[in-house]
Design a binder for these strands. Structure first.
Lengths: 212, 212
DNA sequence: TTATGTTTAAAACATACGTTTAAAAACTTA
DNA sequence: TAAGTTTTTAAACGTATGTTTTAAACATAA
């Protein structure tokens, strides 16, 4: 007698969870609404009911966690700023790079929460049709703008163009690392394992700092 | 009376050209066979006739230029090796990095030939379903293996794992740069233009060398 | 020319897709 | 309970998809 289905108030969240994962592993076009609803054990119409369209669902997946992640980045920046002020020095390059990379990398390696999946989703979203994803980029740009003055203070000789190019390169390393984390074992003939969250972050931050 | 259609022996190539471009701008699933054949001004069945299936077409697009590009990389490596030997020194880090990055970057900026499109296609192909694309990766891995001893000679303290990670990071920077070349103008508020082929290559090589 | 193999053409097939509709079910509030 | 709102369900719609089929057009060589 327990087969009676009650209304589940978490339907919306379950759809988001499932599609976050599917969109992280495949392109927008390759993920069907039906594959989402069936895996979420939800009626087909639920997607259109809650999100209007497939495109609306995609954007909702993005929005759900984007704000939080960029807040974390700014928070780390402020922490580093205060610490530096207390010690009467500039914010170090390492602190800056770390503030930008730590949230996504930590999320990535946090299997507990669903954040891990989101980071892969995000890296993939960057490659979707430009017009749809420009808004996504905008928010990150605004965050990065707050970092630029600090980079400039470290090396006043750097032009803004130099700084933007290097931030751009940093994001490249990060997104690529995220998307190909499992493939690196192929590349190295199983020589190196994925490694812990701290290990990856350490390698990444070092590479980016030296690149800067 | 010129509307009589002769047999066009270039049908196969035209299909490859068009799909290379479409696959460079969109995911595998988002590109329809019909969009390919109509833009190539070719009958719908031609794709299945020449390539068996859509998947076959995709792989054919990859294979057409992959071998050539990796040959170019190895060629540059040999050139650097001979020059270094003649001068009685080791191959420099810069020469190694340059040998790996120059072919794709030069191709990327070469609007004349169709190579430019191929590089973008390639970067996108890396994100397609793993099982289909592992063969694609295999070839690059084999090429990179030939570079490893030279990196080791430069810095014998480096472990193989270190080297593979850094090669991995390099490819990340490159692919990301390729895929987001137009977006960098957004990121920098139009502060920096795309720049010439040499400029991009120079920035990229420098960043990667320093990262190493 | 005729015969043979290759390439193009148009149509149809079966299926999968995103979305809509309309009614039933579950929940909320009075 | 009764009325009203929100959520879930099943079915259908129209369209787009990859692929197959069958025949016509072409090229080449005997």
């Amino acid at each position: 007698m327990k087969s009676k289905k009650p209304t589940r108030p978490d339907t919306r969240e379950r759809i988001l969870d499932v599609s976050e994962e599917l969109f992280a592993n495949g392109s927008f076009a390759s993920v069907s609404v039906r594959s989402v609803t069936s895996r979420a054990d939800v009626n087909l119409s639920a997607v259109n009911y809650y999100f209007g369209s497939k495109q609306g669902l995609f954007q909702a997946v993005y929005v759900r966690r984007a704000t939080q992640m960029n807040h974390e980045r700014v928070h780390l920046l402020h922490e580093a700023e205060e610490k530096a002020q207390a010690e009467g020095r500039n914010v170090s390059l390492r602190e800056l790079v770390s503030a930008m990379l730590t949230p996504p990398i930590f999320w990535l390696c946090d299997e507990e929460k669903g954040f891990s999946v989101y980071i892969r989703f995000l890296a993939r979203a960057y490659l979707e049709e430009a017009s749809d994803m420009d808004n996504v980029l905008r928010q990150e740009v605004d965050v990065f703008d707050r970092f630029v003055p600090f980079f400039k203070k470290i090396d006043p000789e750097l032009s803004e163009e130099d700084i933007y190019w290097r931030i751009h390169f940093m994001m490249g390393v990060m997104h690529h690392t995220i998307n190909h984390l499992d493939r690196i074992s192929i590349l190295s003939h199983k020589a190196c394992k994925r490694g812990s969250r701290e290990e990856i972050l350490e390698r990444l931050v070092k590479f980016c700092c030296d690149g800067f």
